[in-house]
Write a protein that binds this DNA or RNA. Structure first.
Lengths: 238, 238
DNA sequence: GACAACTGGGTACGACGTACGCAACTAGGA
DNA sequence: TCCTAGTTGCGTACGTCGTACCCAGTTGTC
């Protein structure tokens, strides 16, 4: 018995009581330091020691503010969602509003690559996450059932997540191989040629030969695909 | 100079030459052990030490077969794709074929939760990945440009990935909190009620009150949403 | 003024990936 | 047939990680 008592959500755990010495730091401060490090050097670089060092303290001090690194991640996720430059209320033009969400999400994920595709149940009810959810569902509130909104938003967000994570993973690969995209392609060429020459991958050949999308800038690719997805959504609305 | 020479893809690195003693293991053997462990205890449990221990050897022996744990992950990813129960060629019925892909992907990801949403450039040209790509693009080869296929498949796969990862993350949360879903909901109730009572989240309220999707089984949710997504795709085809 | 509740932070433990080194083994060229 | 270069399995060691535990010092409440 006793002990542990793992809470369901970090937002159910109050930050402090008022007995002992005045706390020297705060959850927000720690969260911001962690985000700074994760942005610069990746999520795995935001270790308790490193965060503490950045704040000028010892690793174990952080545990006075946050139950675990895992909970800190929930705080980080919701904290960056503050940056989403989304109006307070939908405009009434669902297509414009969904475009806003998609492009804002993309910008945010490119700024904070560690955030992309994080899908944690414990962070699902964070205050900022809920604000975004309100805007998204409000935008699609055009006379269709809630369940329909769910699916269409999953489709849109699924597309955005997939494409942007592709961008991010590609950039990460470029950085940690230390190669330029041209050089990377060049190094892959013998293997790819072998694949093409085998004749077993006709569609892959057509992609390499015909596809124009890969030769557009990431922004153009994203916008173009996004418009097609929104066309699909338009077809599903009354 | 010299040294390092990081290869672009693990499939460009030949497994062995033929000089010294006969190797006691193989890449495939190591890959399979790693997959077994990752399935049972999560990707982070598939450490070099643990894999080696399962094979009855020392951690450093594995490095004779695989350049790094990172490359091993690429091998794991492509290896499980062998399981995708997908016919050799598309049937001609694009809707049936895409349904096959989606449901096969879901089954595979639920069997190997660590696989879900892995999107690594280095694993993009693995032989089994290419086989799936051939089937998917072949299925959608109904007179639309390659770029169009790209977008529609990103939309479909994005949806699948998002929904299935939701299932997986939820299951993981249940397992590591040691709670039943009912108990988890119960524990969250006070916080959720507080949110609802604040009046600031009207759409969230409607979701909690009106949505029927969350009360369906995961399979039903998936199938229902998938059909709506395929409807959308149908609208985009000639 | 006493005491309970809290503070910052040091030490320690058992994991992790992997660089390095070494003895044992084996194939190709003489 | 023997030599030797290349390759084997694998132990040791280093620097990292999250965090359990401990303790001296600080502060609000009575």
């Amino acid at each position: 018995m006793a002990g542990a008592e793992r809470q369901v959500s970090i937002w159910s755990v109050p930050e402090r009581q008022g007995r002992g010495p005045r706390p020297a730091y705060s959850r927000a401060q720690i969260t911001e330091a962690a985000i700074r490090i994760a942005d610069a050097d990746g999520l795995e670089a935001a270790s308790m020691r490193r965060i503490a060092a950045d704040l000028g303290t010892g690793a174990m001090s952080l545990y006075r503010y946050v139950p675990s690194r895992d909970d800190l991640l929930d705080l980080m996720i919701d904290h960056v969602l503050l940056e989403a430059d989304i109006p307070a209320h939908p405009s009434g033009d669902w297509r414009a509003d969904l475009t806003l969400i998609a492009e804002s999400t993309r910008r945010m994920w490119l700024r904070h690559p560690w955030l992309a595709g994080q899908q944690r149940p414990r962070a699902a009810f964070g205050p900022n996450r809920l604000r975004l959810l309100e805007f998204a569902f409000g935008a699609l509130d055009v006379g269709i059932p809630v369940d329909e909104m769910f699916i269409l938003l999953d489709m849109l967000n699924g597309y955005v997540e997939r494409v942007v994570r592709g961008e991010i993973e590609w950039a990460r690969e470029m950085r940690q191989s230390g190669l330029t995209p041209e050089r990377w392609m060049l190094d892959s060429a013998p293997y790819v040629r072998e694949l093409l020459d085998s004749g077993r991958y006709p569609m892959f050949r057509r992609i390499v030969v015909d596809a124009r999308l890969p030769h557009m800038t990431p922004e153009e690719q994203f916008r173009y695909g996004l418009d097609r997805v929104l066309d699909c959504i338009a077809g599903a609305l009354p």
